[in-house]
Design a protein around this nucleic acid. Structure first.
Lengths: 197, 197, 197, 197
DNA sequence: GATGAATGAGTATTCATTCAT
DNA sequence: CATGAATGAATACTCATTCAT
């Protein structure tokens, strides 16, 4: 009977917000942004349509927060403060870590791929995405250089293309390209690319 | 006074249909199927909304014809009746040929990537796509085996992932990943993967 | 090679016009005026959409001419210039004659019933219909009076209601109410109504 | 501040649904199904177009519910559980009762007549209608037999034709065939048909 | 905070009608 | 006379968003 504390309210708000975002993420990833209606999101979240607008200004804002949150989940956690040089073991760990992130955030990735392909949906998703991915490329570049690559830039391109392609395949046709198998093959191929100069 | 001949009508129909399909392809590729309205397609084609329905039963039918036509353009021309073994030169030619196809059909590819990510838009696009791509994988498999690959299946995976990723990058961020540069890097990387056992 | 005479042209025009009207009648009777498109009428007539407008100003005009022609067919031919008194035999003939007209113009009747029920389609169909039917009622009235009816007006009402109902049933459910059987029953019932005062 | 209770919502829904159905019935009866637009229904009901779809899936569904409701109103209330034999008084009451139902549901009848004439609008309206009318015919048949009719089937036909015709006249031209007058004439005529063998 | 009724702008689609040939 | 491409207004229906309760 005692009034809830501010903290409790905040917690409830936070949880409800996440509930909505999760529902939205699943639907956006599966059906696309435009084909997903607010009604559907609300229904999936088990709340009323109107309540959605208590937490988000618009459908677009849900997407924006999903993008922001997805970036944080996928890239931020991706803590690359090693100014130093990666060993081979660390590189392997790095690739594996990325595959694990993919596995855990499949729907984010699916959404992100869609957004990359449809820039009109989210104005500067593409730009933000590139900025976020930057450290990844730098790290890869440094690693390849340290390994003696004579064309580290080109190697970054092909390796990240391979990774991106592997991710896309995994997201789109997981039954044909199982993640765990892809992972090993990709790591192995990376080393073949690196070691052969 | 006298009505147009059948040939004249056929010509008009042919041309107008292509006009509509081109407009639609560009918009579908750029904004996505759902975000593209018939009005917009008509406006881009410089015709009235109603006329669109003189040529296509529905918006979905435009997409279906685009898919069919895209498949033909991208895969059919892709004549892989080499039962024999590819030489290295032929392999290089094959990769280059694919990059050329990509270059010429950028918008088809963009559309196709989108459709792969949103299966709900076109019921069995995904299945059809896989069927069409099959010969490609077989050819690659045979080539890798002929080159003495101890894991041709795995190599097919990583190489096609690299190609797919390169295609995706090229389509999505051509300014960062220029097609011509990618092409050379990819060919080079393929050989490094192959030769190193 | 010799140019057709005016008469030939008129004949062709007349025939084509009838062709269109027949197609339209069938469709209007079956699907209703609004649910019948000009395209469909043209297709059924085996001509082009545009040509229809060479013979009729509008879809509405086709209906108007059908109504006019239907009136003529159903009522005009119905030559009741007997100022004198009908014998019983003549009355029987009269009823039979009407059933025969119904049989031969089923679709006109179907259309007319529809129009009676939807006055908005044809502005004064209802008025015209009543005017046309007037002589019929008068004749019936005179006949009943001559037969000694004490309430000829009332008898006109019930007998024409019975006829109208029989017509409606025949048009709407001919399998349950076969025309030939209805005919005998109705004639018989008329006499029972008349003779019993 | 607190949201409406379920009861409040139910009441609103109930009332608004009836409002829409009443508007639709009036328009369908007057102009026909195809000539009545959703806009018009909404305007007549004093609500927005969109709201209509909050209550009905489609225009067709409005019609279906009107038919179902009309059947219930016209036939269900029509309690003919007399397994026994009707007296003449009961028969008179029965006819009068039917005229009263007609009077109270004029628009339903008008709509139903239209639907009978255009089976394409509602797939099995005709079948359902016949099923619903069945008990009526059986009752009439039994009554006529009990009165010593030598051709009860034929008498059912002509009497129901007369009733149907009277209904149609009343619906279509109430000013020429006033319901109350028709009623007496019809009852009277029925007895003349029956008593005369 | 929570509900769902209500709105209005937008979307795909149809169709009577026009018109160049 | 004849064709069918072309138009534009209308129609059924959807959906993000607002708001009274």
């Amino acid at each position: 009977m005692s009034p809830r504390t501010t903290e409790q309210f905040d917690k409830i708000r936070q949880e409800k917000k996440e509930l909505i975002m999760n529902s939205a993420l699943e639907l956006f990833a599966e059906k696309g942004f435009h084909a997903t209606s607010i009604s559907l999101i609300a229904k999936k979240a088990g709340i009323s349509k109107g309540l959605t607008y208590n937490y988000f200004e618009s459908k677009k804002e849900i997407l924006d927060e999903l993008i922001a949150h997805g970036f944080d989940t996928i890239f931020e956690s991706f803590d690359l403060n090693h100014d130093g040089i990666l060993t081979e073991e660390e590189f392997i760990h790095f690739i594996k870590y990325n595959f694990r992130l993919l596995k855990e955030n499949m729907r984010h990735w699916k959404l992100f791929f869609s957004l990359l392909l449809q820039p009109s949906i989210s104005d500067n998703f593409s730009k933000d995405y590139k900025e976020r991915a930057e450290p990844f490329f730098i790290m890869l570049y440094n690693f390849l250089k340290s390994k003696g690559s004579t064309d580290p830039e080109g190697d970054v391109m092909v390796i990240s293309a391979m990774l991106e392609g592997a991710f896309l395949y995994t997201v789109v046709a997981p039954e044909v390209f199982p993640l765990d198998i892809m992972e090993d093959k990709v790591i192995n191929a990376c080393f073949r690319i690196i070691s052969k100069k």
